[in-house]
């Protein structure tokens, strides 16, 4: 892998870093991947630093902003596993409880439904009602007891065909009401 004279400076820097760490044999794509990583990392840090400097109502990013951005970043990435003593402590706590007894049940033994991914993927789709569209035109005719949106949805769920369940659609606007089960259906003891 001979170094190219047209190679960008960052690339040769990366090459020498690898060399310094004792990595001599690697695919060329490794360099590109690392360049990508450094670019993403540095822009990420600088963007964070900009937010902090704006928060402190400063005009320019200074060293302290960057340091803060780095520290905040370190908290959730490039972290080490928890210290051994801490893990031993957790293990001691956990392992002092006897193995849980097993309920007599049939079928596959799964956690309570709310922890499973077995529920049907549902979404409540609201079709436009022709009556609603006409409402603005007939302002005078609005009766006092016009149902609010809430009551419309509730009644719709129960018996009206204007709303339908469309399975397997994006879960973004998922109606949580339709999915949520009562907790007393569960038989867990957490």
């Amino acid at each position: 892998m001979s170094s190219n004279s047209h190679e960008p400076r960052d690339m040769s820097v990366m090459r020498s870093i690898l060399k310094e760490m004792g990595v001599t044999d690697y695919e060329p794509a490794v360099l590109h991947q690392l360049m990508e990583f450094t670019y993403k990392y540095i822009t990420g840090v600088l963007e964070d630093a900009k937010v902090y400097s704006e928060h402190a109502s400063k005009d320019e990013i200074d060293l302290r902003d960057v340091k803060l951005a780095l520290e905040m970043r370190l908290n959730h990435c490039y972290t080490l596993p928890p210290p051994r003593e801490f893990l031993l402590e957790i293990a001691r706590d956990k392992n002092s409880t006897p193995m849980p007894l097993i309920n007599e049940r049939f079928g596959i033994r799964l956690p309570p439904d709310r922890f499973c991914l077995t529920a049907t993927n549902l979404q409540l789709v609201k079709k436009d009602r022709p009556a609603q569209k006409e409402l603005p035109n007939k302002e005078i005719k609005i009766p006092q007891s016009m149902p609010t949106l809430d009551t419309i949805t509730q009644s719709a769920v129960i018996n009206e065909p204007t709303h339908s369940f469309a399975p397997f659609e994006s879960t973004q606007n998922m109606s949580m009401k339709a999915l949520k089960r009562k907790h007393d259906e569960d038989y867990d003891e957490f």
Partner: peptide, 20 residues
């Protein structure tokens, strides 16, 4: 994270944590 965990299929939390 240097641990092993033992789970039962019907619990979402591990039943044993083996650290060391």
């Amino acid at each position: 994270d240097t641990t092993l965990r033992i789970w039962s299929t019907d619990q979402i939390l591990p039943v044993r944590v083996l650290a060391g």
